[in-house]
């Protein structure tokens, strides 16, 4: 990453350039705030956590070696903060599966009204917040900002194949939640 604007930005921040850090915040606040706001129900708390993420970035910049992309590193900080915020949802088992008995047995040809109305958006947001944090971060990061699978894998310290699998499992869990608890 040497010689790139990102590298220069990091260097300027390390040298105590306040304008550079402000630039960094401007550049990444969309990503950080969007993920926080999607994962935390209270807007004020989401903002506080997003600010906290940047404080950690500021504290950690002297130790940032530049081996990962800056966005990946920031994304990892966001994931860690969310895991601390929701310790009950902090982890997910690689073997997590669903008990299909939870799924209502619908009759073939049943009406799909539940998935077609405008309320689905709100229900979807609520269901996402019920997912384990790694799943939330995956879904929010992947869909909100179009982060690449490689970035997600690096940020979450997972092989790329596992990221894809987890993303599918997260969406599967969403589908089950929308069918059961958020119906």
């Amino acid at each position: 990453m040497r010689g790139t604007p990102e590298h220069e930005l990091v260097e300027r921040c390390r040298n105590g350039d306040e304008t550079a850090f402000r630039e960094l915040v401007e550049q990444y606040k969309g990503l950080v705030f969007a993920i926080m706001a999607r994962s935390v129900a209270e807007p004020a708390r989401a903002e506080e956590l997003a600010q906290e993420a940047f404080l950690r970035v500021h504290q950690g910049l002297p130790y940032f070696r530049g081996e990962a992309r800056l966005s990946t590193w920031i994304y990892r900080i966001v994931a860690n903060l969310l895991a601390q915020e929701r310790p009950d949802l902090a982890t997910v088992s690689l073997d997590a599966t669903f008990d299909d008995s939870d799924e209502p047995r619908v009759q073939p040809g049943a009406d799909d009204r539940a998935f077609g109305d405008m309320m689905l958006r709100d229900r979807l947001d609520k269901a996402i917040r019920r997912l384990p944090v790694p799943y939330q971060v995956l879904v929010n990061g992947h869909y909100l900002k179009g982060l690449r699978y490689e970035d997600l894998a690096e940020a979450l310290n997972m092989p790329m194949g596992t990221v894809k699998t987890h993303l599918h499992r997260a969406k599967r869990q969403l589908r089950h939640l929308l069918e059961t608890e958020f119906r």
Partner: peptide, 25 residues
């Protein structure tokens, strides 16, 4: 259902940070 969820996720707009966010940081 899975397609509906996927399409909704794709279409979802990212929440924008409030105006004073950077100043707050």
């Amino acid at each position: 259902q899975a397609r509906a969820i996927h399409e909704l996720l794709v279409r979802r707009e990212a929440p924008a940070p409030p105006p004073g966010f950077t100043a707050g940081v």
